[in-house]
């Protein structure tokens, strides 16, 4: 299966940078304009994936496995984060009966 990567190598790394930047910005936009906290959370996952993609691309172009290991860690942490975050969202929903982010206005210090 090595012939596919060889063709892909003709694509400059900078295109991957552009792709992941665009993905990141889309995620950011979603985080800011969506009101449903679950969607916001999902948009954060998009941002994480954008970063992952860039890291994998760089690791692959450099031929260094360490970058991919980092992505592995990112995924692990993301999984833990999502599970805890969703548990918290469920608890908030139980208390406030909403997932509208604008109604989470009790975080005043």
């Amino acid at each position: 299966m090595n012939h596919i990567p060889e063709i892909i190598r003709t694509i400059p790394l900078s295109h991957y940078v552009a792709l992941s930047s665009a993905l990141f910005l889309i995620g950011l936009l979603g985080v800011l304009i969506r009101k449903n906290i679950i969607i916001v959370f999902m948009c954060i996952e998009i941002m994480l994936n954008a970063v992952n993609l860039l890291m994998v691309a760089a690791a692959s172009y450099r031929g260094d496995s360490a970058g991919q290991v980092m992505v592995l860690f990112t995924m692990a942490v993301a999984a833990a984060e999502v599970s805890v975050g969703l548990a918290i969202i469920v608890m908030i929903y139980k208390n406030l009966k909403t997932t509208n982010i604008d109604l989470f206005d009790q975080m005043k210090g």
């Binding site: 190598r9 400059p12 690791a59 172009y61 031929g63 260094d64 496995s65 290991v69």
Partner: peptide, 20 residues
């Protein structure tokens, strides 16, 4: 952004990742 690539195609394989 450096365009030169290192010819290690196996860096994404499970053995390599496992080792690192």
């Amino acid at each position: 952004i450096s365009t030169d690539t290192v010819g290690n195609y196996d860096s994404g394989l499970v053995e390599q990742i496992g080792e690192v």
